[in-house]
Simulated assay, not measured.
Amino acid sequence: MDITRNTFSNFGVFQHFALVTLSFLVHCVKPMPVPTAAPFCTASETAHYSLKFTGKWTQSAFPKQYPVYRPPAQWSDLMGVTHSSDFHMWQRNEFASNGVREFTERGEAWTLMKEVEAAGERIQSVYGVFSAPAVVGGTGQMHTEIDVFARHSYLSFMVRIVPSPDWFVGVDTFNLCEGDQWKESVTLELYPYDAGTDSGFTFSSPNFETIPQEKVTQITSSLPNHPANSFYYPRLKHLPPMAKVTLTKTTKKTNQIISLPLEPTQSNQLPTGNEIEDKLTDTPLDCEVSVWSPWGLCKANCGDSGMQHRTRYVLMHHANHGTPCPPLEEERKCIPDNCL
């Protein structure tokens, strides 16, 4: 009898312990979050936006090593796409593509556009490509018009910081739609990014490839944490914005053709009658480049032939149908001369 009583007593203790444990699991253990898909736009009509990029790169805001000449502070062409949520033109904390490398280092957009085209054909993720002309000056403006629709409601773009090793500003996968409504107006502050492909510290650093390649990172007042860095301001908690972009929903004017200038401009605005007349008498300006840098190190194993590079930079961009700039990089075969 005592054995039976003890057995049932132990069973009661076990049952009580099991109920307490179950209650703890129900109330205290949270379920794993289930990944949610990107918000889906259900707007019925295509939206038309006016995009205005404004440079805020001034000597007063960024006094350290501010480029005054050879070349002065300026912005490259703006290159952008409208797309779905499964496409990234570039992405923070991810490796830059070859197209992004060429654009951020040399301002060449051919490979980047081929990558965009390939993504559009492969996964139908890209709707349109747009651009705006380069700006001569750190505080100029550029302007363009874009169309977006529900399936491709996201916007991405890049603008190269000139001069720089591989630095840029831009936007990655920004959604212009909320539910079934298009956003009426958006202003985004832009901060510098490092593409992770060149190891230069200053605006005018010579080409010095990063091996192995690093991921795209945002440049801050303390990153890279080196006094030689052009953005190194240890007293600042945050860098001031280097540029901003404003997107305004507008009514598309089908009866008006807007022709954007092909040359770099201080401000991309439609010219007045007097400005058009003045441009007819503009003197052509040929491109001017620096002398060649010394040949770089011969990249090869001892006993093998390799390649070495040299570069030059733009002193002045061509304008008004002047002579375009010649190639800014050369390479030649070499044999290492420092072998034991």
Rank of each mutant, 00 (worst) to 15 (best):
C287L: 07
C287R: 02
E288T: 13
E288Q: 15
E288L: 10
E288M: 10
V289G: 04
V289I: 15
V289N: 02
V289M: 06
V289S: 00
S290F: 01
S290Q: 02
S290Y: 09
V291R: 05
V291G: 05
V291L: 11
V291I: 09
W292Y: 12
W292D: 10
W292F: 07
W292N: 08
S293I: 10
S293Y: 07
S293A: 14
S293M: 05
S293V: 06
S293R: 02
S293Q: 08
W295I: 11
W295V: 09
W295C: 10
W295Q: 12
G296N: 06
G296F: 03
G296D: 03
L297I: 13
C298E: 09
K299N: 15
K299C: 14
K299Q: 15
A300S: 08
A300M: 03
A300C: 09
N301P: 01
C302I: 05
G303P: 13
G303I: 08
G303K: 08
G303V: 04
D304L: 05
D304S: 07
S305I: 10
S305R: 13
S305D: 08
S305Q: 14
G306H: 00
G306K: 02
G306E: 05
G306Q: 05
G306L: 00
M307W: 11
M307K: 14
M307H: 12
M307A: 11
M307L: 13
Q308I: 06
Q308W: 02
Q308P: 00
Q308G: 00
H309F: 14
H309A: 09
H309S: 13
H309N: 06
H309T: 13
R310H: 02
R310P: 00
R310N: 12
R310W: 07
T311Y: 07
T311Q: 03
T311M: 04
R312G: 06
R312M: 00
R312H: 09
R312L: 01
Y313V: 09
V314W: 01
V314I: 15
V314H: 08
V314L: 06
L315H: 10
L315D: 00
L315F: 13
L315W: 13
M316N: 14
M316T: 12
M316S: 15
M316L: 15
M316F: 09
H317F: 06
H317I: 10
H317Y: 10
H317A: 11
H318A: 09
H318K: 04
H318W: 12
H318M: 02
A319K: 09
A319C: 12
A319E: 12
A319P: 01
A319N: 04
N320M: 11
N320P: 14
N320Y: 15
H321W: 03
H321F: 08
H321S: 14
G322V: 06
G322R: 06
G322L: 04
G322A: 03
G322H: 08
T323D: 01
P324C: 04
P324R: 10
P324A: 03
P324S: 12
P324E: 01
C325Y: 03
P326M: 07
P326W: 09
P327M: 02
P327F: 02
